[in-house]
Design a protein around this nucleic acid. Structure first.
Lengths: 242, 242
DNA sequence: AGCGCTTTGTGCATGCGTTCACAAGCGACG
DNA sequence: CGTCGCTTGTGAACGCATGCACAAAGCGCT
């Protein structure tokens, strides 16, 4: 008989907000700020969840992890909820962000307005191309990659954004980590290996398209073939086309 | 006593690849093409999973959903596995992509090399700014937003990429759907509502940063305070700072 | 041919996330 | 002041995903 193993209900002492909930809080926050701009004072879970594109029960459970805000029979106070979600996400502090790699994507990120409104300040831009160094984007001078360590310390960077080619990503990441950066957002199509204490999130444009392609194919197959009929299937011949 | 409800083991007739697996297949694919370039012929689940940053058991279970490729005692044939994953994802067909909104981000996407190598061809660029219309990027002429319907039909677009400001996103999306586009990749910070037959995936740069901020805050809190001590917590006073 | 080494494929258990459904709570109204 | 309607917060059930551990299966060497 298997040993029932003493229950370890979550990590004993952490605030304990589930990861899936954390991933949705920013969406709620964005919708709420939109509602606040319209002057709306309170909102029900039904209305808010519809605007955020999730089920109402899920929304209520998510918010219940932050505490018991909201009034039965009425709903949630918009301003107060904005404050509480911001606090839960740690947005009451401000973060200084460095972007490494000022190509097309780096330019786009530097110009993206959505950062500043959430407490993220682009504090530094870094590139390896000598022709770009010295240029200014949105009032920030581009520094050379050789000075990465200096710039990170100088501006007390807390989050690094990697927008370099894949070949340079791991090296840049290692240097960021060595400087004490513990949060990295990676746009390069590469798997980064980091110590356990460092958080990495990746955004891969090509992966998203491939996931769409999968569903697109599945939809197309459902039209042309009966659900029972198997696809042509493996003909162990040629590899993928050039 | 609750009714045990007859088992409904998956949707009876779908190929049945779990969503979580689909999201990882592109990563395996990328790593595999890298290995193929080095001339490696076969690879074990241990080696491949390490390069992809996942556990080896997870990798094997993922691949087992595609079929029983791989040889016990040896590993997987790299070329053959590339072909099988490509086929499972529907990458044996080619997809024509339209990018709507040619601002900073649209430019970056149009120049992104990772698309073409996976069977995605940028077939059209669309923008509402008359000054941009007529310009060319990577050999593709920018067309005006008014001609969206014409352009989509003309190039038989299968996937639409929305890189417009948030305010225009829903309108553009509706028009794409009306033209028969059933897959949309949305970069605008807005929740799109679409019929059930349409797939939408969203990429929100600001959300990723906020998730990092949450973990960053949690790490910082763990240093300054004991695990038992609660955070300052709610003082129902001021709303969020300006 | 047989044996042992290596690696796949998978049954099982565990934990997380989602959904349903409802009791508890709050305001409004008579 | 009691009742009624609305909305929150949550207990419970279900399904999906992850990780472990091992039997099945092929390869090479003797």
């Amino acid at each position: 008989m298997p040993v029932p193993r003493a229950a370890t209900p979550r990590q004993l002492g952490k605030p304990g907000i589930p990861e899936a909930t954390v991933a949705r809080l920013p969406i709620y926050l964005r919708v709420l700020t939109g509602l606040a701009d319209t002057g709306l004072a309170t909102v029900s879970s039904e209305a808010l969840s519809a605007a955020a594109g999730v089920g109402s029960a899920k929304l209520r459970k998510d918010l219940s992890h932050l505490g018991s805000y909201g009034t039965r029979g009425v709903g949630y106070d918009v301003e107060y909820l904005i404050y509480q979600i911001s606090r839960a996400l740690g947005l009451t502090q401000h973060y200084r962000v460095a972007i490494i790699g000022v190509g097309n994507l780096g330019h786009a990120l530097a110009n993206y307005a959505g950062f500043a409104t959430r407490g993220f300040r682009i504090a530094a831009l870094i590139d390896s191309d000598p022709a770009q160094v010295g240029e200014e984007i949105v009032g920030i001078e581009i520094r050379h990659l050789d000075d990465l360590e200096v710039v990170v310390k100088e501006h007390e960077i807390s989050i690094g954004v990697i927008a370099t080619p894949a070949t340079a990503a791991q090296d840049v990441c290692d240097r960021l980590v060595a400087c004490g950066v513990t949060s990295v957002l990676n746009f390069a199509p590469a798997v980064l290996s980091v110590p356990e204490s460092v958080d990495v999130r990746k955004v891969d444009l090509s992966i998203e398209l491939q996931i769409l392609a999968f569903h697109e194919q599945r939809k197309a197959a459902g039209i042309h073939a009966e659900p029972g009929a198997a696809v042509p299937d493996d003909v162990r011949t040629a590899a993928v086309a050039p």
